[in-house]
Write a protein that binds this DNA or RNA. Structure first.
Lengths: 109, 109
DNA sequence: AGAACGCATCAATTTATTTTGATATATCAA
DNA sequence: TTGATATATCAAAATAAATTGATGCGTTCT
C-alpha cells in the first residue's frame, strides 16, 4: 500500500514536472500571459510578444505538448488558448506538495 | 499605472520562473520529496536519492540558489531543508495566474 | 600531527534546449 | 491558376544545463 502511494506520487511528480518545465521559461510565460486575455491567433501573438514566427511556433509547440494550451485551426489561422484544466492540476499539485511538507521545518536529530 | 502593474507582473513572472525552473526536474523533485519529511544532511540525502555526491551537490545548489531550500552547517555536516515561504509564494503565484485567466477560454472574435 | 570524513567546487565532456534561416504546406484572394 | 498569407517543420548552429571524476577545504578522530 505504501508502495502504491509512492508510485502514484512518482507518477504525479513526473506529470507535474512536464507542466512546470514548459511553464518555467520567460518567453513562454509571456505567451501564457498574452493568452490569459483570451484565445489568440499566432499572428496576433507575434505582435504581442514580438517574437519571430519560427521561434514563437517552437514555444507554442512546447506549451501545446505539455498540455498547457490547445489549438484550433480556422481557415488560414490557428488559434491558441490556455487549457485551464492543466492550470488547475498544477495548482492542486503544488497545494498537495505544500501540505506534504508539514514536517519540512523540523530540524534533524 | 497600467505600465507599473505590467512591470510588476513581469518581475513576478521572472521570479516565479526561477522557482519553477528549479522545481521542474525529476531529480530535484526527488530531493524535494525527501526533504518534505524534514531537514536532512547531504550524506543521508545521498542514500535516499542514490545520487553521486557531486551530482547531488550540484542539484542542491540549484535548489538553494532558487530559494526553495536553505542550508545550515553543523560540524562536518550540512543540513538542508525546504523553505516553505518559497512554496507558498509559488502557490500564490499560480493561484493568481489562474485567476487572471478568467477570460482565457473566450473564443477569438 | 596525520588520517579520514563530509561536502563544495572546478574543468572537461556529454546531453538537452533554443535560435535561426530556409523550406514546405495549406488556405485564401485575384 | 498564380500569388500572397499564415503557420509548421527541418537542419544547422548557438547556448545552456547536467554529468563525471578530480581536487580542495574545513572538521573531527586517533
Amino acid at each position: 500500500m505504501g508502495a502504491v502511494v509512492a508510485e502514484e506520487n512518482v507518477l504525479a511528480a513526473s506529470q507535474a514536472s512536464g507542466l512546470l518545465k514548459a511553464l518555467a521559461d520567460p518567453l513562454r510565460m509571456e505567451v501564457i500571459q498574452s493568452l490569459s486575455e483570451g484565445e489568440c491567433c499566432v499572428c496576433d501573438l507575434m505582435k504581442k510578444t514580438d517574437l519571430a514566427q519560427s521561434r514563437l511556433s517552437f514555444h507554442l509547440k512546447v506549451l501545446k505538448d505539455s498540455g498547457l494550451i490547445t489549438d484550433r485551426q480556422s481557415g488560414r489561422w490557428v488559434y491558441y488558448k490556455l487549457d485551464l484544466k492543466a492550470f488547475q492540476l498544477l495548482e492542486d499539485w503544488i497545494a498537495d506538495l505544500k501540505k506534504s511538507c508539514k514536517n519540512a521545518a523540523k530540524p534533524c536529530s
